[in-house]
């Protein structure tokens, strides 16, 4: 070991490799962080699609109030709001609510809604079976749409939490357009 360190040629090489690895480490933090967020609900990030809640898992002994919130990013000229502002339900109960979106920007647009739940520790208990946030949404000029969220709150939600807010921020995603986008529509 010592002789390796003392080798005049190999040591700088070894140190260079360390530096390159650390450069890679910086990038490796990105997926690690994303995984960590999904697991612990840092920043109130919710997970991907899950199964519907099962009837027998409904916790009828308590109520949870869910508030729905909408924010337009970067002065996006859209109408965007939840059609239901808040509901009260039992943990485990499946619920369908709609967000309304109308493209007033005067051009066709692709948007992405970013979900966020507060308090952060409740995020991982919000299970969504169907959500307009799972994919990007394409809107024509002036198009109006009701967009569904089908979800339930896991019955394991910590007892002390009785109010949580589910927030969506609407971002212009023209720059990040993906091939598979959705035009999922609810009733208007």
């Amino acid at each position: 070991m010592t002789s390796f360190f003392l080798n005049k040629k190999k040591l700088p090489l070894l140190l260079t490799i360390i530096a390159i690895l650390m450069f890679g480490f910086g990038f490796a933090l990105v997926p690690v962080y994303t995984l960590l967020c999904k697991a612990t609900g840092i920043n109130g990030k919710t997970g991907g699609p899950t199964q519907l809640g099962l009837l027998e898992e409904i916790d009828n002994t308590r109520w949870v109030t869910i508030q729905f919130i909408a924010t337009n990013n970067a002065n996006l000229n859209w109408a965007f709001y939840p059609k239901t502002t808040s509901i009260k339900l039992h943990p485990g109960e499946n619920t369908l609510i709609y967000y309304y979106a109308e493209n007033n920007s005067g051009k066709a647009m692709t948007v992405q809604a970013i979900p966020s739940v507060t308090p952060g520790k409740a995020a991982k208990y919000v299970k969504k079976t169907e959500c307009f946030c799972f994919t990007q949404q394409n809107f024509k000029i002036g198009e109006k749409r009701d967009m569904p969220v089908l979800f339930h709150v896991d019955a394991n939600l910590p007892k002390e939490i009785n109010t949580l807010s589910l927030s969506y921020t609407l971002f212009n995603a023209d720059k990040y357009k993906k091939a598979a986008t959705s035009e999922k529509q609810g009733h208007l």
Partner: peptide, 25 residues
């Protein structure tokens, strides 16, 4: 709505960063 702000009122003992896309309470 855009960049990171922080809502701070000393006498309420509150300082919370406002982060685009995410909500904190």
């Amino acid at each position: 709505n855009d960049v990171i702000h922080s809502w701070w009122v000393t006498e309420l003992g509150i300082k919370r960063d406002a982060i685009p896309g995410y909500i904190h309470e």
